[in-house]
């Protein structure tokens, strides 16, 4: 038969053999991102160890300056320890996000898979997404809270609802694009069942953008939680969240800026870090 052509030896790989996600986190952007996000997450997880006070205990020491003995970050207008409120606020935000983002992602992906079954279903799902997007997000938040009353649950639901179309559209596009790729056709001609074509060929190639979207969604979740607190429809006081503490500090900006400093720095670090990670992932995937 024909002469054996050996695969060209020693051809340098154009791309590092490492997994793209790991490569993204190891890039400069990824490292800075992690350095910003990890301490915040750690503070939230270790809140009970770090706080030293209950976040809701009031004292007579109102608006104490940072460095006051026993109150490293000072106290707020009601004399509550700001460090405790900050770390428990982070903890509350993490709890909400950890529930809401996976919920939104899961539902969004389910809708996308549903849409992939038939063009008619696809049109219906698309229009439903359009409708959700046609309502300004925060108006939606107000409406949901009006129905359910303020609390943790509405915040989780609003965030999830906002994420559904984002994930849904992304995965739908991915499936539509990958389904028409020649290797998908090749797999069908090669006898693979529709389920196998979907799970083995289409989904693995459509999943990368979703990973980026998760990082983006986390920042959106931080934003929505904060915004709802500012609008007075967030988690019920006196429970602290990052948004709640920041919104309570607004009247005292001129006299006690340290009141706002903690959440201000924390939120900024968190969202910047997450955005950098999202960018790093995106760059690595698009290569």
């Amino acid at each position: 038969m024909t002469a054996i052509t050996l695969p060209a030896p020693g051809k340098p790989a154009r791309r590092s053999p490492r997994h793209p996600y790991r490569a993204a986190l190891a890039s400069a952007r990824g490292r800075v991102g992690l350095a910003l996000v990890l301490p915040v997450v750690l503070a939230g997880v270790l809140a009970p160890l770090l706080a030293g006070h209950s976040p809701t205990d009031q004292s007579d020491l109102s608006l104490a300056a940072p460095g006051t003995p026993g109150h490293l970050l000072g106290t707020d207008d009601l004399g509550r320890d700001l460090l405790a409120r900050l770390v428990y606020g982070i903890r509350a935000d993490l709890g909400i996000i950890a529930l809401a983002v996976p919920l939104g992602a899961l539902l969004g992906c389910l809708f996308a898979l549903l849409a992939a079954t038939h063009p008619a279903v696809d049109t219906a799902v698309q229009r439903a997404f359009d409708l959700v997007l046609a309502f300004p997000g925060l108006i939606l938040a107000l409406a949901v809270t009006a129905i359910l009353g303020p609390g943790r649950l509405p915040v989780v639901l609003v965030i999830a609802l906002a994420e559904i179309p984002a994930f849904g559209r992304l995965l739908r596009t991915g499936i539509l694009v990958e389904r028409e790729r020649e290797y998908a056709t090749a797999a069908r001609v090669g006898g693979a069942s529709p389920a196998r074509v979907l799970t083995r060929h289409i989904l693995p190639n459509a999943v990368d953008p979703l990973v980026v979207q998760i990082a983006v969604s986390l920042t959106v979740a931080v934003f929505i939680e904060g915004a709802m607190s500012f609008l007075g429809v967030g988690v019920r006081p006196p429970q602290p969240t990052l948004g709640a503490v920041l919104s309570q500090s607004m009247p005292y900006l001129a006299d006690a800026p340290h009141f706002a400093a903690g959440p201000l720095i924390t939120v900024t670090a968190l969202v910047l870090g997450l955005s950098l990670i999202a960018e790093a992932l995106n760059r690595e995937i698009r290569r």
Partner: peptide, 17 residues
């Protein structure tokens, strides 16, 4: 990156400050 990531309530507070 900053303008995109940082939510309006943070930029709002910073601008007022």
């Amino acid at each position: 990156t900053g303008a995109l990531a940082v939510p309006p309530f943070v930029t709002g507070v910073l601008l007022v400050l």
